[in-house]
Each structure stands twice: as structure tokens, then as C-alpha cells.
Design a protein around this nucleic acid. Structure first.
Lengths: 163, 163
DNA sequence: CGATATTGCTCAGTATGCTGACTATCAGTA
DNA sequence: TACTGATAGTCAGCATACTGAGCAATATCG
């Protein structure tokens, strides 16, 4: 820190804190950090998207990658790498679909099931920690407003949610 | 889409939509897409972090990279690359500080100033669009709750806000 | 003053996330 | 059946973001 720099202006055109986009990024940044810390402390090396993919594959055995991507709102090009790493870790299996030779069927392994079970408490703790500044009522309201804003903007990103 | 996949279970352990972390990522995903679309339509090729850095450099001439990183809550290792690209585009200048030879002083160029001026309406439009599902009152409430949650979690990420 | 700790910055490595392009395959239709 | 369009997946390229390490320079303290 350079001590002799002039005092910061307080009247920027628009304060960062007034920008929904900035707040969105900050909240997400904290959410990811908390997730990785909690899951790491529990002894696992899983990222948020890897967890989401694993849980969704468990709940929908045999689904293909595009469907998976739609269910968790990730781009299919991103999912390719995520799946690679989950396979690498032995948590899922990827095999050609007998019905559609373009598609790959995804299946959770026993090890994946075990990891998911052990990791869930850490994931839930992370969700609480990232809302720790809010009352229960405020946390609910934040989630309601986020869901509403997201629903209205669903089609605006390349990877909309597909149910 | 494989048509013969079994119907999706509705009773996952925890629906994605109930996870604050998932909602945070989705909202941020939409926010970035909207930002890039609006700014791109205005004829500019600037990312959200590049815009934030540019605006902050303009408001605080001569600041160093670590201070900049703290003001917009980015990791200093990320800022290095962002600054590289802003310099590359001719929007800012980076020069050695005469007071601290470790530090680099950042200054906006005339071209950077012009770009910032022309781009601001698009940035403001983007902020409105990402909240388009909410009433004005709800948008305010969402921002208040985000600010509150972020303040409580500020120190939980590697790149906390430093004012 | 000199040893030590701290700070500013960069880099290598990894993982998201995106755009755009491409291949292989499937589906619908003339 | 042959043609055309759509779809599943991958890839190259780029830009965040992070961890951890390292270098150079500054600050601190005995």
C-alpha cells in the first residue's frame, strides 16, 4: 500500500455497492470459498459444480451430458471437463448409450455414492455459513428474490436451466 | 435428449433451487451474460472485471495493483492479467512507482476515459435488465440482503473488500 | 546497522465458464 | 431412400479465479 496516494474519492459515478452485478459476483465468490473450505475440511476435494453434477447423476441414473447440463444450468462445453474429472476420481462412469451413439450415459459409482453421503453435511454447513449475516427470515427472502430474478433471466445466459 | 430415460425423481436430497450457493452462481451467470451482451451491443469488448478496474483506476489515479484489487475485491493474481489486457487495449498505463519500486502506478488514458464514458449507459442498462423480474422495491431489498450477507462473509474469501 | 518480517507483484498450475467450430449421429421429410 | 436440419459431444482459444511459490524491495525491530 502506497501511503502517499491521495485519499480515495467518495463520489464515484456509481459505487460498486450499488451495482447488482458486483454484488452478485461478491456473493458467489464468498459462496465458492465457503464451499471449498467446508468440503476441504471434511477431507474431500470436490468443487461446487462437481458436487452438483454428482448429486444430479445420482438422482437421475443414466442421464446424458446435455440433460445433466440443463438440469444444473451449465454450458455443455464446461460439463465435458467436469465429467472428465469426476470419472478420473472414480466417482462416476461414462459409457456410450446403446440407444443413441452420440450420447454418453452417466452413472454414479459406489465410491461416488459414499463420497456424496459423507460430503453432504459439509455442503449443508456451507449453505448456512454463507447466509450467516442474515436472519432465517432474511435468508428465505434473499433466496426468494434470487429465484425470482433468475427465473426472469433464465434465457439470457447460454446455459439456461432446463427441467 | 434421450427419450427413454426414466422420469426425473422429484425428491432429491436437496433441490438445487434451495441452495443459496446454486442461486448465487445462477444469478452471477446471468449478470455476466447480460453485461457482456449489453456492452457488446454498444460496440465494446470489456468484461465486468475490466470495467470495474477501469472505473476504479479513473476514480483513484495512480493507485497500485494491490489497492485496486482490494477496492474491487479481486485476488491480486487475477488483477495482474486483467491489467495486462487493459494496457494491451490502450485504456490504462502501468508504470513503476517512484516511491516504491515494487509497486506499479495505474493511470487511465484518454482513450480509457472515452471508452468509460461511452460504455456507462450500457453498464447501467445491464444492471436494470438483470433485475427485470423484480419490482423496484424488490430489487432494492435484494441488494440490501446481498450487501448484508457479503459484509458478514467478507473475510471468508481470499480477496476480501478493502476500503 | 543488520537480521527478519512483510509487502507488491509475477508465475505455474488447475478449474471454471464462455464463444465458435467441428464431427458423428439421429430425426424428419420430400 | 436421400437430403436436410437438428442434436450430442468434443475441441481450441480466451478470460476469469483460485492456490502456492518465488523474487525483489521495503518496513520493522533488536
Amino acid at each position: 500500500m502506497i501511503r502517499t496516494v491521495p485519499a480515495l474519492k467518495e463520489n464515484s459515478v456509481k459505487d460498486n455497492n450499488d451495482m447488482p452485478g458486483h454484488l452478485a459476483r461478491r456473493f458467489q465468490q464468498i459462496a465458492v470459498a465457503v464451499f471449498l473450505a467446508e468440503v476441504g475440511d471434511a477431507g474431500f476435494d470436490l468443487t461446487p459444480v462437481q458436487y452438483a453434477a454428482l448429486a444430479t447423476i445420482k438422482a437421475n441414473p443414466g442421464l446424458d451430458q446435455v440433460t445433466l447440463a440443463g438440469l444444473i444450468a451449465y454450458d455443455r462445453t464446461t460439463i465435458t471437463g467436469v465429467i472428465d474429472r469426476l470419472v478420473q476420481k472414480g466417482l462416476i462412469e461414462r459409457r456410450a448409450s446403446p440407444r443413441d451413439r452420440r450420447a454418453r450415459e452417466l452413472e454414479i459409482t459406489d465410491e461416488g455414492r459414499r463420497a456424496l453421503r459423507k460430503i453432504t453435511p459439509a455442503v449443508e454447513a456451507a449453505q448456512r455459513i454463507m447466509l450467516r449475516g442474515l436472519s432465517a427470515k432474511e435468508g428465505e427472502e434473499l433466496m426468494r428474490l434470487l429465484r425470482k430474478a433468475i427465473a426472469a433471466g433464465n434465457e439470457l445466459s447460454r446455459a439456461p436451466l432446463r427441467e
